[in-house]
Amino acid sequence: MENRTIVIIAAVDIIGILASNTLKGNIYLFDNNKLMGSSGEGTENLKTKISFNPNENVVLVWNVMPLEPESFANISQITADDKYITIEKLKYPSSDVIYWKGTTIKPFDHLKYKLSITVGTSGTEYSCDLDIIGELAKDHAILIN
């Protein structure tokens, strides 16, 4: 089955972050792959499930969404092992709105990554650790390793 491009949304309670100076309890993560096995939707421990088809890179897109639409939040960095994934900061064309795009390089079982966010005009960076769980597409399980 062809891979759906995975979109990951980090919804952030900016007032909560500024009041408590932490992402903990103030970030909710979602992706559009729960039907295929992602877990932890709506929590700060999202585990995004992806499946690898041979010769096909999986593309992931990250966006941030402030819970108060008038306030500002920004993904300042996403870091992961660059042996497995290339991560780029990009801009939607004809706009100033940033998104982050990840393209897998080779299959993996489990990839941890760090998502960093800045809010409002404060330059403080807040981070959390998240997971991508990989599996080989069922039809191609024989190709593992």
Binding site: I9, V64, P66, S94
Partner: peptide, 19 residues
Amino acid sequence: IGSLPITLPHNYYHTRSKH
């Protein structure tokens, strides 16, 4: 989830189509 984010301007679909 899977739509362009709401942080984009409200007329984004139209301006992109024109561009």
